[in-house]
Design a protein around this nucleic acid. Structure first.
Lengths: 217, 217
DNA sequence: ACCTTACCCGACCGATCGATCGGTCGACAA
DNA sequence: TTGTCGACCGATCGATCGGTCGGGTAAGGT
């Protein structure tokens, strides 16, 4: 299927992903996407039936790329700690490989969706894909608690921390590079990020977690 | 100055903050804000000269609340580690006290601003306030490195982690509560978040940082 | 030769956007 | 009573939104 010259549909998708990631769903008009794709506005509606459908197609592509990394990691065997580490590595690799995906994902998770978007027929599949990956991680955590490898802990908080630290890291790439003067996408930065997240996990999950900060209240 | 019945201007500001935080600048129309405030659309323009000005007023209010907590913490004396800890506590307290502020701030940091917004006269002051707080934290980090308390480290990465973990924690409150079934704003959750961030800081900043995860590459 | 299919375009539609207009109302002062 | 003011409103503006329509062009099958 893949063609050497990118087809119009693929061109539209990549352009739309970059625009939606930066300015959000309501912030990008159809005509803007069309112009950036080198097409007329009406030509867009030949490939996608509506703006909401276009956005969902972009998001499904992002999810597919992430799943292609995360799902294999979910199925690899090992201790709960190893499995969780593999998933974290896969997620970080997927986000580092495609930084705009992180922005889109961050928006999808913390932003109230546009009414037109939640009414789209693809919305259910998007929710299912997201829930599938979340459930996969939750299953690892629960298995770890059941086998005694992990101590019982506030799983929501921990997921927030993981998602927050990793996704936000890549989502704010421009901010980090412009204001702070360093690349967040270099191999060294990605490797450091993996270690940081795993340190966070150890401190939060391991039964004999050493406390490096005094406990209060 | 404060009146027992909230003035129209304050009512508009609080309503607009909630709406902008959830749906973004382009996602909220003037008529929506007016209707939610119990006013006619044209009455909004009596209090604010433009939509961009209204958004900036909301954002400046958020920044003022955060500054009222963070700036005193920046001026307290102590070791670099203590000062950094105070700032982190102040930031977390400010965000926990006003969760919608976190959403607005997250959006402001990682989202490309609308052209109408960057052209607003208040934009310069907003940037200055943000840069002021960032510079204050950076100064603490640099002083710590100069005095040998902190090891030289990728400050951008570290700031990303802190901002990501804290801001995202509160920005995605609804997500956490609805999908994962726990409150992120309870006193216990806030205290746990403070410890997590400080653990992260210790691991990233201290010269004798113990590594709990094997180093790679 | 003809028809189909895919792809693309300019012109256009109703709805909504941010913003402006002229004007109403009550409070207060002279 | 008259004048002035801030607060507020309905009606309306031009621009833009997402989306439709009919027509055009090139390729391929028969």
């Amino acid at each position: 299927m893949p063609q050497v010259p990118p087809s119009s549909r693929e061109k539209i998708l990549s352009v739309a992903e970059a625009l939606f990631a930066r300015r959000g769903y309501t912030g990008v008009g159809i005509s803007t996407v069309a112009e950036a794709s080198g097409l007329g506005k009406s030509s867009l509606f030949h490939h996608f039936p509506s703006k909401a459908s276009l956005y969902c197609a972009v998001l499904l592509g992002v999810l597919a790329r992430i799943e292609s990394r995360v799902l294999p990691a979910l199925e690899k065997s090992g201790t709960s700690e190893q499995k969780l580490g593999n998933v974290v590595d896969a997620l970080i690799d997927a986000l580092a490989e495609h930084p705009t995906s992180a922005r889109l994902l961050l928006r999808e998770v913390f932003e109230e969706p546009d009414p037109a978007l939640s009414a789209a027929p693809e919305a259910a599949e998007i929710d299912a894909r997201l829930a599938g990956m979340i459930d996969g991680v939750a299953a690892i955590l629960e298995a770890g608690v059941a086998s005694g490898q992990f101590r019982k802990v506030g799983i929501p908080d921990l997921l927030q921390t993981i998602i927050g630290a990793t996704v936000y890291h890549f989502a704010s790439g421009d901010f980090g590079e412009k204001l702070l003067g360093a690349s967040l996408f270099s191999a060294a930065a990605v490797a450091r990020r993996k270690r940081e997240v795993k340190t966070l996990l150890s401190n939060g999950l391991m039964p004999e977690a050493r406390r490096s900060v005094a406990e209060e209240s």
